[in-house]
Design a protein around this nucleic acid. Structure first.
Lengths: 226, 226
DNA sequence: CGGCGGCTTGAAAGGCATCAACATAAGTGG
DNA sequence: CCACTTATGTTGATGCCTTTCAAGCCGCCG
């Protein structure tokens, strides 16, 4: 689909995908943190020190509004880097929480920056990946619940599966989380997924979601993918 | 408010704000383009060649869905850089259109990258500004029309005014554009603004919007600013 | 086994979209 | 400069989608 997938297979030694270049980053990110489900990686407003590379599991960045509702701003899965948004204010912009048991690598920003200055190839890749994050969640602008859910499913499939032909993934979050991410009530998520099941586009067993009709889902999502 | 405003005054010779460093960028961006209101800067899917620094005016990046409705993904004003999202796919992710008569500078990406490799200080700044763009539009996740409109007004005030104490700005777009950006109907924008006028929080003369009660607006916006 | 969180389904309420009509402003051509 | 045309903004009435509230079921973990 794009250049990223090709390059992800380059380095079999770690899970950093394109971000790994001659293992420098591995050295930088050698300090691992293990987070239990629900554990806080960092809180909003804390001084920014580390980027975090997700090696296993899933992270949400979120915030709670005045009424106490949670809003999820971004999701980060395996091989994705979390924390770029904190560079600007030198504070974490959101609170980051583990959605499931998760393993991350700390990447100290000053060292990261030094490395970028020394390694031009790495710089190109980092800009590439930051650019990618600017395009994330574009489907959140779509109007109806069905559009957003369909696009979300295709997004997750792409980001959670290792090979292109995959058509199922393990959902690493609750319906409430999905709702908080898509700006929809939990009940709406449930109802929309039920409808998609009834229409034979997907099936769900426990936490595994199968996407039978990716083309049809993409039509519903108004062509955000493919 | 943050480090950015301080540094914006460093270079009086151009409008690049923090992005300007010892004038290298000026050299890179010396090719200007003048766009009439409504003119297309680039279309979705075109090969990515240039970043664009907005020197005057305003740019929207948008797309039209299946039904023909326009969706606006980002807005770029004076001193802001447009096009980072195209790095990832090496194609422009959205169509960019001038909202008013606009002047931009072309920055060829290969040269830009070379310059970054040579100038570490510039690199830090670029990462800072890309980081900032990751935080843009976070208020689009808020629930009600009033919240989104209030946050939008504060956002525009901050980005369109040169000094902190300003409390008015010239709206460089139509209500339809605002609606397409906030995912609200034109009529809803009109009604919401009318209500804010009635509540004495703002006033509007022609295209100039005055924000009398920034604190109150911020309360409505659920604290996205200040 | 009990309790709690997560999921499902129904009914009702509310906010925003849509449609329509009109008012006003902006742009165009004579 | 004015008349005409088009785009933009305003206001009201109606309907629909999603939220909210409520009740019940299921699965998981202590």
């Amino acid at each position: 689909m794009n250049s990223l997938h090709f390059e992800q297979s380059q380095c079999p030694r770690c899970s950093f995908g394109v971000f790994c270049l001659n293992s420098e980053i591995i050295e930088l990110g050698r300090r691992k943190r293990h987070l239990k489900k629900g554990a806080i990686l960092h809180s909003r407003g804390e001084p920014f020190k580390y980027l975090y590379a997700v090696k296993q599991g899933a992270i949400k960045t979120c915030d709670t509004d005045v009424i106490g509702n949670e809003l999820i701003y971004s999701l980060y899965f395996k091989n994705e880097i979390c924390g770029y948004d904190a560079i600007y204010k030198q504070q974490y912009f959101y609170t980051a929480v583990a959605l499931v048991d998760t393993e991350v690598c700390e990447i100290a920003y000053p060292e990261f920056l030094e490395l970028l200055k020394k390694k031009p190839n790495l710089l190109s890749r980092v800009l590439l990946l930051m650019s990618q994050q600017l395009t994330w969640g574009s489907y959140l602008k779509s109007a109806t619940a069905q559009q957003r859910v369909a696009a979300f499913l295709l997004d997750l499939l792409q980001r959670l599966s290792t090979d292109h032909s995959a058509s199922s993934f393990l959902l690493p979050m609750t319906y409430r989380d999905i709702g908080n991410y898509l700006n929809l009530a939990t009940e709406t998520i449930s109802r929309t997924l039920s409808q998609l099941k009834k229409d034979q586009l997907i099936s769900i067993e426990n936490k595994t979601i199968y996407l039978f009709e990716k083309e049809a889902l993409n039509d519903l999502a108004e062509g955000f993918f493919f």
